[in-house]
């Protein structure tokens, strides 16, 4: 049994069920829809804003916001790749076929990582293009793909979605239930959006350091003074996901299937 055998096996499982593929298609659709809507919303805000607001407006910020929301569906892809095995009762069969559980978890994680990593840049491209079109349609300043840093952010989207997919895999192994893992996964991903509910000091910390917020810095085309540098931010997300995967692997190995 080689890692290659396990990868082929896991790829076969991944692409032969609809729930995971549906989630992936949904994520792409969501980035398109949200990309366009964020464009509309930011255009309204720009047109209603003061001169100072207008001066501070950066259309590239608008371009990738949809990715963070679509991340919810990307993490669900990772969750379902794992929990569909628990739900259908096939996990014992899979573990009997590949008793080296670390290898089994690694195979699943690798398949999800590759799929979600590859899906990221097209999602970013769709989101960016539609958002800039909806800005431009209202004569609000917009950016082009050729602008400095934009293609870097598009490529960086793959890192973001890939890590978010792996985050789903870790939660799937830890919680074993689709509903629980998707709910918790969603809540933790969008927590920075609720930062204003927390005391100021905590809110500031969350907006900067919470892993999903930090990871989204990879989309910052013009990193200003606020927030982490893009690579530091994605590094925070990567470290968190890696830690979660290690815990998931330890739990998966220790637990009866």
């Amino acid at each position: 049994m080689t890692a290659y055998d396990v990868l082929r096996s896991e790829w076969g499982k991944f692409h032969s069920i609809r729930a995971t593929l549906g989630c992936l298609a949904g994520a792409l659709a969501a980035t398109a829809a949200y990309g366009y809507l964020f464009g509309l919303a930011d255009a309204r805000r720009y047109l209603a804003g003061s001169a100072a607001d207008r001066a501070a407006f950066d259309p590239t910020d608008t371009g990738f916001r949809a990715l963070v929301l679509a991340g919810v569906l990307v993490s669900a892809v990772g969750v379902l790749a794992v929990t569909s095995e628990y739900a259908s009762g096939t996990m014992p069969v899979s573990v009997a076929a590949v008793p080296r559980r670390g290898l089994l978890l690694g195979g699943k994680a690798a398949v999800v990582a590759v799929v979600t990593l590859v899906a990221g840049p097209p999602m970013a491209l769709v989101s960016f293009t539609l958002s800039q079109l909806s800005l431009a349609a209202r004569n609000v300043p917009s950016a082009g793909l050729g602008d400095p840093g934009v293609l870097g952010a598009v490529a960086g989207a793959g890192l973001f979605t890939g890590l978010v997919g792996l985050y789903g895999v870790a939660l799937g192994f830890l919680l074993r239930r689709s509903a629980g893992a998707v709910s918790l996964g969603t809540f933790l991903l969008i927590l920075p959006g609720m930062a204003s509910l927390f005391p100021d000091a905590m809110a500031e910390w969350i907006v900067v350091w919470w892993p999903s917020a930090a990871g989204a810095r990879v989309f910052a085309v013009h990193p200003g003074s606020g927030g982490l540098a893009p690579l530091v931010g994605i590094g925070v997300l990567a470290a968190t996901v890696l830690a979660l995967l290690c815990v998931a692997a330890a739990v998966f190995r220790a637990r009866d299937v």
């Binding site: 055998d5 396990v6 896991e10």
Partner: peptide, 20 residues
């Protein structure tokens, strides 16, 4: 213990692949 939407052949193939 089979996934209701994964065809019988693909179910077996995924298991087979893991063991070469």
């Amino acid at each position: 213990a089979v996934h209701p939407y994964r065809s019988a052949g693909k179910h077996l193939l995924a298991l087979a692949r893991g063991n070469g």
